[in-house]
Design a protein around this nucleic acid. Structure first.
Length: 373
RNA sequence: GGGAAGGUAGCGAAGUGGUUAAACGCGGCAGACUGUAAAUCUGCUCCUUCGGGUUCAUUGGUUCGAAUCCAAUCCUUCCCA
């Protein structure tokens, strides 16, 4: 079945809803951990469940190249292949055209994008049809339309052409989408420009999707202001009864700003990546556990945190693991960081229900910026 | 006792007359990371009151100039007795 979005509370623009999926119903706003290669780096599904993960992400481009969508299909689909019995959203590969072929030879044509494999350098052509076909085979629960994700530095003119091509791609993708158990999301582009976001949102909604995402955000040095504009200029044209997903975001403050603007779903590599690099989210800002000051700090990352890591390990121990280059550090920090963001969304929902979202948000941000660093 | 090689910043190791406060690696200290080519990348790492000061085992020479050449001394490793 297709996913269904049920709005249960709307506190100004901040929404508390429920996403009904094949695997169960999950509350929004939600944070989705990223498992590009059919795994959330360093973690097993049981650990993701324990931090209350709902939907997780995987990636069309990467699984296309390795192991190949046919292998995944033979395995019985992505869920079975990776042992995840919860919903999976697959990104279309559009972002990889931007991030992976950045500064490299690539040719964006009406047909699709020609670029080189990052694994063996061979020439590839990814088209909207191909992306959807792969995602159909992967059998994810939510597929994303194939879009172009332009850099933050793109001009108005470039963005306009790009977004209009992305619209044509979205139509083509929808036409070949055949997996009845899979929902399909459209992606709004248009950078920080009001006219472009409006055009992109209205036209994307006309095509008709099960959910809408805002893309092209938080790319290489884009300012926060531009990111918030991109959301503000898109949201008014998106239907109330469909989930809105802000792609690739983000930091705790970005999630709060997104929710305030009407976003329901977020995903980001940050919690797991910065974990592997030794950082942890805390309510008073991000901390770097490698820092000397934690050498003799025998307290948890946060005593108020309910995660496995905080209940069982000290900062001094995690620092020791990091300094010794032990991978357990990345695992423990990933557990904490994902839990931190998911707990943030839980607190957000509660505050929306109690009509105290803005108050909650403002307090959170004041404390977060009070970082002891 | 005889012979050989060698002693360079916290460690390892380049450099063998000037452009050398001294490559590079490790270690150390910080920073970055937003639809994951990322367990990665970047910066700093003799002292400094930022003018400069003091270095390449030690001491003394040669030279306009020495980590680099010479002498002595101390130490290390290896080989032969």
């Amino acid at each position: 079945m297709k996913i269904k979005y049920e709005l249960i509370k709307n506190n100004d623009k901040a929404r508390h809803g429920i996403l009904h999926t094949n695997y169960g119903s999950y509350e929004t706003p939600m944070f989705m951990p990223v498992g590009t290669l059919a795994n959330v780096k360093t973690l097993v599904p049981e650990e993701l469940k324990e931090v209350n993960s709902a939907v997780i992400l995987s990636n069309t481009y990467h699984l296309w190249l390795r192991p190949g969508e046919d292998i995944v299909q033979k395995a019985g689909g992505l869920h079975k292949f990776m042992n995840w019995d919860g919903p999976i959203l697959t990104d279309s590969g559009g972002f990889q055209v931007f991030s992976l072929a950045k500064n490299k030879k690539k040719d964006i044509t009406e047909e699709g994008v020609y670029f080189k494999s990052h694994i063996d350098g061979r020439n590839l052509l990814l088209t909207p049809e191909k992306s959807i076909e792969i995602q159909n085979k992967l059998d994810s629960d939510i597929a994303m339309s194939f879009d172009e994700c332009p850099p933050a530095s793109a001009s108005h003119e470039y963005l306009k052409n790009s977004l209009e091509r992305t619209l044509r791609w979205a139509k083509r993708g929808k036409e070949v989408h055949s997996n009845e158990n899979q929902s399909l999301f459209g992606i709004v582009q248009g950078g920080p420009y009001e006219d472009l976001r409006k055009e992109s949102a209205i036209e994307t909604v006309k095509i008709g999707f099960d959910g809408y995402s805002i893309g092209g955000v938080a790319n290489d040095g884009e300012s926060k202001e531009d990111m918030y504009k991109a959301i503000d200029y898109s949201i008014p044209y998106l239907p109330e009864d469909k989930p809105r997903y802000l792609m690739g975001v983000g930091e705790p403050i970005d999630i709060l700003e997104g929710v305030q603007r009407g976003i329901d779903m977020f995903d980001c590599v940050l919690p797991t990546r910065i974990a592997r690099h030794g950082n942890a989210f805390t309510h008073s800002g991000k901390i770097n556990l490698k820092n000397l000051k934690f050498r003799e700090d025998f307290t948890p990352i946060e005593d108020t945190c309910d995660c496995y890591t905080c209940k069982n390990y000290t900062k001094a121990y995690i620092r020791h693991l990091l300094v010794a280059n032990e991978q357990l550090a990345g695992r423990l920090l990933s557990i904490h960081n994902i839990r931190f963001l998911i707990k943030l969304t839980e607190d957000i929902r509660k505050s929306i229900d109690e009509d105290k979202f803005i108050e909650f948000k403002n307090n959170f941000i004041i404390n977060y910026k009070k970082s002891s660093k």
